[in-house]
Every structure is written in C-alpha cells, then in structure tokens.
C-alpha cells in the first residue's frame, strides 16, 4: 500500500467516526433525520454506480429496485411478522430475485436498449402497484413499524449500512470481479474471447447492485413508515444518477460525496423558489459536469493528487 493510500484510509476512518459521533454528541436532532436520508440515498447512488458507472450498464430505472426493496420489506414485516432487521435483508433478497428475473432477458440487449428497458420497468411497476389493492394501491402501505426506537440508532444503522455498501463496492472492484466487470464495460466481444462468461457476470453485477438498492429502499420505507407507488417515480430514478455524476462516476467515494452535496443543497435551498428549482439546479449541474468533467468531483481530485493516468 502506498503511503498516500494509508493517509487516505486513516482520514476516511476518522471522517466516518466523526460522522457517527458528532451529530449525536451535539444532539443535533433535526440534522439526524436528514443525515439518515442522505445515507440512504448515498447507498442508492453506490448501487447505481456499481452497475452504471463500473459495469457500463446504464440504468434509468433504479427506483424500481429501491421501491421494490421498500415494498418487500414492508409487506414482510406487516403481513408476515418478520422482525424489521431481518425484513430489510429478506426484502432486499426478494427484489434481487425479482429484478434478476426481469433483468436476465434484458441483459442480452445492446447497451442503449437495456437503458430504455430500465426506463420502462418502473412505469409498469407503478401502474401495477397502483392497480393491486394487496400492495396498498394508490395510497401505498401505511404503518410500517420502525426499524429502531431511537432516531440515533436508526442514523447509526444507516451510516453503517452506507459504509458497508461502499466497502462492498470497493472489495468487488479490487477483486478479480472488478477486472471482469471492467472488461465487460470496455469490450464484450473481447471479454468473451478471453473466456469470460459475460451474461453470467452481468447478472452477478446486476444482482449485487439490486441488493444494495433494495436495502436502501427498505431503510427508506422504515424511515418514513410508509411506502407508496410515488417511490417508483422518476425523481428516485434520477437522483442516484445525478449524485453519482456530480461526485464521480466509476469512483468508490464519488456517489457518497455527490449524495452529501445534493442533500445538503436541498436543506440549504429552503427558500420557496429555490426548493422548486432544486431539481433543475441538480440536473443542470449534472449535465454540465457530465459534459465538462466526465469523471466528476472525486475523479477530478484524484487526478490532482495522483497525477494524470493513475487508475
């Protein structure tokens, strides 16, 4: 490990510890809810980055996995009495299974068609959920029991889950899987010629990404105590994309940095006009960054620190 890397890891752990201790020690109750929400969206962005940033499979419908995880966890804990913490993981597993089933035939399509299919899926899910009373119909599912009694515990759990998802994406990309995913992103035909079972690894990458998004969605459902079809809508699909583009595509910390910037912006933009304009500001910002700095803030900083070509 390079010296620079060591400093980096130590700094990161220090920041994480500060994030865990400070809001609680200073008793900043109103911030804790916002930070919890931020951690949840950061997780969603990490999940999107794994699939769309690292593997090059552009998803415009991550809200399907997010809302799906929320619905599955809510139904498991309300109708089947599964304890909340277990329901988070079981719910994420359910949506991983469902999403992989839908993804399997779609992964065969060329990249831009895959992207458009991902745009369609949440629209179908929205209409289907709307029409099925067992899923709560238009109003959604109410009275989801809380994951933890205290807001502090919920916050710490969301922080741990977010750090965990970052760790997973780091370990995946550092392992042989990371090389395989990059090969698939770079050139599928060459990857096949090198002996890589492309469909299988695409499915594996998709499943990991869905699982993380599903966990984030379950947290979201427990945080709000309610989940409705509106969660499938475009805003939840575009937020992880905007956050990741801002922070840095195909970088480990990019999605988290982007999520924090955007969520802090949301809270800063309390003025009425600006609140209405916030999505305009993010999308314009993401468009600009995408066209001018395709690797985002973290990519830009990394180039400054490590020099031009360091991977």
């Amino acid at each position: 490990m390079k010296r620079l890397d060591k400093i980096f890891v130590v700094t990161l752990l220090a920041v994480l510890a500060a994030m865990a201790v400070l809001p609680i020690a200073l008793n900043l109750r109103f911030i804790i809810f916002i930070l919890t929400l931020t951690n949840i969206f950061a997780m969603l962005a990490v999940s999107w980055n794994l699939l769309s940033g690292y593997m090059g499979l552009l998803s415009l419908g991550h809200s399907f996995f997010f809302a799906g995880g929320g619905y599955a966890a809510a139904i498991l804990s309300i109708s089947y009495g599964v304890p909340p913490v277990a329901a988070v993981f079981l719910g994420a597993l359910v949506i991983t299974g469902l999403g992989s089933l839908i993804g399997l035939p779609s992964l065969k399509l060329r990249g831009h068609f895959f992207a458009l299919v991902t745009l369609i899926i949440p629209i179908i899910a929205y209409q289907v959920t709307n029409a099925i009373p067992q899923l709560g119909g238009h109003d959604g599912i109410f009275g989801i029991p809380s994951l933890f009694q205290s807001a502090e515990a919920f916050y710490l759990a969301s922080l741990a889950a977010m750090a965990g998802s970052v760790m997973v994406s780091y370990l995946v990309m550092r392992s042989r899987l990371g090389i395989i995913f990059t090969c698939i992103k770079d050139d599928e035909i060459a990857a096949k010629a090198a002996g890589i079972d492309v469909p299988r690894y695409k499915l594996l990458g998709l499943a990991i990404s869905i699982f993380i998004a599903g966990v984030a969605g379950a947290f979201y459902a427990y945080l709000n105590g309610v989940i409705s079809p509106a969660t499938y809508e475009l805003e939840k699909a575009s937020l992880p994309l905007l956050m990741t583009l801002l922070g840095g595509r195909a970088t480990i910390l990019g999605p988290v940095v982007g999520a924090y910037i955007i969520e802090i912006l949301i809270e800063t933009l309390k003025i009425e006009v600006l609140v209405r304009a916030r999505l305009l500001i993010y999308s314009a910002l993401a468009l600009l960054i995408f066209m001018i700095f395709p690797s985002g803030i973290v990519g830009f900083l990394r180039r400054k620190v490590y020099g031009d070509t360091a991977g």
């Binding site: 042989r176 899987l177 090389i179 395989i180 990059t182 090969c183 992103k185 770079d186 050139d187 035909i189 060459a190 990857a191 010629a193 090198a194 002996g195 890589i196 079972d197 991977g311």
Partner: peptide, 24 residues
C-alpha cells in the same frame, strides 16, 4: 483467438489486461 482490429480492454492497465483472462 486475437482480433484483426485490436480490442484491448482500454481502461485496464497493460498488466491488468494480462490478468483479465486468468480471472476466469
């Protein structure tokens, strides 16, 4: 096989390109 029109894995380093076929 190799290809007439080259198909390296462009975002991997030269060494990682050699690692790639061995990952599987």
């Amino acid at each position: 096989r190799t290809f007439q029109i080259v198909r390296p894995f462009k975002s991997l380093t030269v060494e990682q390109n050699l690692h790639a076929p061995l990952t599987v």
